[in-house]
């Protein structure tokens, strides 16, 4: 398992561990980040503090520090 924000760009991962603080948990759940959901990291900001992910068809930007505690495994093709 690797950290969500350390995923290779344009690879699809499946969220296997979802352990985030309470104040941000609900936000993640709202945008579709939960256990067993497919996610793709598609962009990183130029200073690497943010990443943008494709989740349920939308492109969502999240600060890397906020995604600590979310671990993924790459989808097997």
């Amino acid at each position: 398992m690797i950290d969500l924000c350390k995923m290779q760009l344009n690879k699809i991962g499946i969220i296997k561990k979802f352990n985030v603080s309470d104040d941000i948990k609900r936000r993640f759940l709202d945008i579709g980040i939960a256990s067993n959901v497919k996610i793709k990291r598609v962009l990183e900001s130029y200073n690497n503090n943010m990443s943008a992910y494709k989740i349920m068809g939308s492109l969502i930007a999240i600060r890397n520090k906020d995604t600590k505690g979310i671990k993924v495994v790459y989808e097997k093709i």
């Binding site: 104040d23 941000i24 936000r27 993640f28 945008i31 962009l43 943010m50 943008a52 939308s58 492109l59 969502i60 930007a61 999240i62 600060r63 906020d66």
Partner: peptide, 10 residues
Amino acid sequence: KSSFILELPD
């Protein structure tokens, strides 16, 4: 610092 989540629309 709070979290920052923003949708980048099509």
